[in-house]
Design a binder for these strands. Sequence first.
DNA 1: GAAAGATCCGAAAAGGTTTTCTGAGACGCT
DNA 2: AGCGTCTCAGAAAACCTTTTCGGATCTTTC
Lengths: 342, 342
Amino acid sequence: MAQVTEPSRSQPATLSDVARLAGVSIATASKALNGRSQVRAETRQRVIDAAERLSFRPNQLARGLLAGRTGTVGLLTSDLEGRFSIPILMGAEDAFGAGEVAVFLCDARGDAIREQHHVRALLGRRVDGLIVVGSRTDPRPSLGRELPVPVVYAYAPSEDPADLSIVPDSVGAGRIAVDHLLACGRRRIAHITGDPGYLAAQERAEGARSALADAGLALVGEPRFGVWSEGWGRAATAMLLDQHPDVDAVLCGSDQIARGVMDVLRERGHRIPEDVAVMGFDNWQILTSASRPPLTSVDMNLEQVGRAAARALFSAIAGTRRSGIETLPCRVVIAGSTAPLS
Amino acid sequence: MAQVTEPSRSQPATLSDVARLAGVSIATASKALNGRSQVRAETRQRVIDAAERLSFRPNQLARGLLAGRTGTVGLLTSDLEGRFSIPILMGAEDAFGAGEVAVFLCDARGDAIREQHHVRALLGRRVDGLIVVGSRTDPRPSLGRELPVPVVYAYAPSEDPADLSIVPDSVGAGRIAVDHLLACGRRRIAHITGDPGYLAAQERAEGARSALADAGLALVGEPRFGVWSEGWGRAATAMLLDQHPDVDAVLCGSDQIARGVMDVLRERGHRIPEDVAVMGFDNWQILTSASRPPLTSVDMNLEQVGRAAARALFSAIAGTRRSGIETLPCRVVIAGSTAPLS
DNA sequence: GAAAGATCCGAAAAGGTTTTCTGAGACGCT
DNA sequence: AGCGTCTCAGAAAACCTTTTCGGATCTTTC
């Protein structure tokens, strides 16, 4: 089916080609195309026409070599399949693409050796900066202070406070989730969440606890840590209902857990949201919209995290470096699984 | 929380720095580091030591400028959120990362203007080639034959048969799915699938039909086209059971549809897989493993598609261009939702 | 008519690397 | 001693663009 044909490529036009066609020197051609003022209008037009006819594109390599800045950045992810990396990556790509910056994508697959390899390769290509995207919010080792270009850590903060990290506000996320449930009139709120080894799980639980404390309340039972799966959501809900059949809201650590929770609630005859409100985390569209009813969830605004990281890297490249961990607020996306008690 | 500090960066070491420190000329330093033979062993070691002390990394811009090849490729996606782009992108990144090729990531967000813009920018950076990743298998407009670098289309083939495209074998996928169900002893097989405007939906249905025909059988009713959602899976299953209560297998156009199908089957008292076998498409781990029972699904081997595209681009850059549409086989990943009839 | 100023163009250097070519020693042979 | 050969080091060109500076031409003014 596929056929082999002769390769036929012509070299891209160079500035001296343009200059020759326009009958001017290379210097004049450059000035004409870059809008410099020392060119007569008529000459400039001739050069522009010539460039058009040759479909000339200035060689960014030569330009970068001369300018010392390449207009490229490295985007270092630890795992592309992780669904948290992708939105961040999109936000960053978006923020850069708007400017004239191109993005090198490197996936270290969670391997420190591979990461080091990629960093070296990127530095060899003289990127102007790096963004390191993690797959969970637990702090990760710094790339080091000796790098010749600025680095911004996104989602997973650096362990070194001298680095700049941009992360979602997990504690605040727990708070606003509970605030929403309280606003719905719920008072007997349980929390079923994932792996206690994840900082995000701990911080969200902490935020939830403190928001309840502010209202003079407490969780129904302790936070139930487990794993990030539907199966755990189902199992934990069964136990919860046995111990506290009067619960009127369940805050879940992820949308997947929430799905498991909803299944068991429904099977046991609890109506959602009339009897029990359910909230998820991550606002994973594919899960929230397919739920019955659609799931209220906390969105971490990961695209914004990516964009903020990109902007921070921009300023760092321009000379204004910041350091420390900067948090961005999350938001509650309300759907059918939560509603005021009637 | 975040603090502002003074920027402090030092220029990366250059080859002439190394040469000066080693007490040789630039030419000799270059030859020493690149393993060229015209250098005495003792001199070479002196240069290597000097390079090490300065942590010298050759400037790839300069190297690319000279060599005419930059060792970079552009990866042009149409939508990053699409879950099909990501595995392809991973495969490609993987295949390139193993060599010394760096990948520019560009997301056109399904916009032709933006795509054109990215192509021009990438050509300005003198990429050695392009991979265009689509979000569905329907043919898409070619970037054109006049590009100065080779292009490979992945997942979404180019409309121009002179281009090279790498796509999963959707017809074959339908065939192997049915073959698996037949091997399980199923004979009354229905097909509930998604948007009929998607070529993938048509081709899979076609493959399923032809595999059944080969066995002297036919689908139970016509393929039921709808949308790619759980809701449609539920609705279609209800209709199906009303018309054909004796169905013993449902082949679904996606894992999401399969989830909906399974929910209604279970609610209506059909055991899976004892009474009815269910198969999905895409092998989306998060859905297949969370199903009850886990879902048998057809995997499109998208990482392999990405890797194959990367390799094809490699050979094209080396001079061996192919053209036409090349298909890669899919595979059935068996789980609990299909089993032999007892 | 000459000096001064304005306007436009081109030569050349810089950026960092690789490669080719030339040259300088060292060594062996007659 | 003279010649050829071999090994190793360096000079210089090439890749492509931008910018600075000097020079050339033309216009204006006294």
